[in-house]
Design a protein around this nucleic acid. Structure first.
Lengths: 231, 231
DNA sequence: ACAAAAGTGTTCTTTGTACACCCATGT
DNA sequence: ACATGGGTGTACAAAGAACACTTTTGT
């Protein structure tokens, strides 16, 4: 009765460093795709909900919790798994030698502040940040998964406050704009940006100010509410 | 190595009849939730991709293929499964007696023209259309799944041509507007509606006309392109 | 003095919304 | 003749995009 199915969870962990959107990748040591970079993930343990499994994976890799985390898409193709063969169509992804039994991969994406992250360097795989817009060929169809995460993030940036977990509780407008520019990969006008953020109710003035190096003190803002957060 | 996981696919099949958005439901005969209405679905067969399984399920239930079909969300909570206990939070869904081993449910939604549909009446479960806005309490968390499908559909209506598989290849503006009004559940202005559809490039004039009962001949339109379609 | 970042308003264009009348046909 | 549905344009409001100069502070 039970179809022989393996389920895995994969997380696209994103952050913004300076002007760049970065993705957390690990280095695979085992076949298939040995020595390829891949998204962190793992087999779904019995008795754990999908959301919790994703949150745990995120915690394992970065040490952070309580951040924006959202389910992306579920892949269930039957990808044989040879690196070289360019399989561009039909998104598929895996954690295990697939051949034969089905493998379902549920993907999530998360947004973290890079200062809060403690990457595990002791590991066999070497977790590291990579520029999301200049990725090498990744294991499985992970490139497509990252692209999908970025598309979704971009769409949500425009009308939600997903960005909240990319910044401290209070922040300056310039900091926020920098985050937006990194993700959307284009420059914006300061004045229009402020007006839009305020009129959409995404942020509000927090009251204080902060000194930013050799400059005028900058006003601080907060997000009005922290969006739907999984777990 | 392999977690004891059951995977199922569930499809929210929607259509518009007259002024109403309808969902296809079947009547459960087995526990859990015997005698409850539920979304059609079934265990995912080994060796079939998710998209194909969803398309096949749709074909089984309605006889149609080549329509808009999109993955919605994947539920993986561990719902025990007693009907009475109102479990409002934590979306979960199932096809099988869950208790113990995990069950993952991948949900899809599809849009069909009701004239093309041939419901299987011979079946033990009795597939039937139900008004999507006045549903009874369904099995599992199927109410939430339907709500989610409707939200997604509404969002996509505004900027894509998902509606294409709800209408014949050519149609009048009134027909299109009727579909939109049924789904969005509000009245719209004829003139603004036409302008928007045309300027967004969702439809274009098809050239011909059609006679609509006791009226002036109406101009025909087509969708400019048929959107991403699974399978 | 000058470099670096912060703050601020106006104009124009585009998009959306509200709104009313005439026409062709069938009964 | 009238009832039914099809077709059409304009005026106002709201949102988005373009655009330049002044202020504070540290070096």
């Amino acid at each position: 009765m039970t179809a022989p199915t393996t389920a895995a969870v994969v997380v696209v962990i994103l952050t913004v460093v300076e002007d760049d959107l970065m993705v957390l990748l690990i280095r695979r040591s085992a076949e298939p795709f040995a020595d390829y970079w891949a998204l962190p993930g793992g087999v779904l343990p019995e008795g754990e909900s999908l959301d919790r499994a994703a949150a745990r994976k995120l915690l394992d890799e970065t040490g952070v919790s309580d951040v924006y985390l959202e389910q992306l898409y579920t892949f269930g193709e039957l990808s044989g798994g040879k690196p070289a063969a360019k399989r561009q169509k039909g998104p598929a992804d895996d954690r295990r030698p697939t051949t034969g039994s089905r493998s379902i991969v549920i993907t999530y994406f998360a947004l973290v502040q890079d200062e809060q992250v403690r990457l595990r360097d002791s590991d066999a795989w070497h977790p590291a940040w990579h520029n999301a817009y200049t990725l090498p060929a990744l294991a499985f169809d992970n490139n497509q998964v990252v692209d999908y995460a970025i598309r979704r993030l971009r769409a949500k940036l425009e009308y939600t406050n997903v960005a909240y977990s990319l910044l401290p509780r209070t922040f300056t407008l310039s900091e926020l704009q920098q985050v937006y520019e990194a993700i959307l990969d284009r420059q914006m006008d300061k004045r229009n940006f402020r007006r839009r953020m305020l009129s959409l109710g995404i942020i509000k003035a927090a009251g204080g100010t902060r000194m930013e190096g050799a400059h005028r003190p900058a006003q601080l803002y907060t997000f009005t509410k922290r969006e739907p957060m999984v777990v």
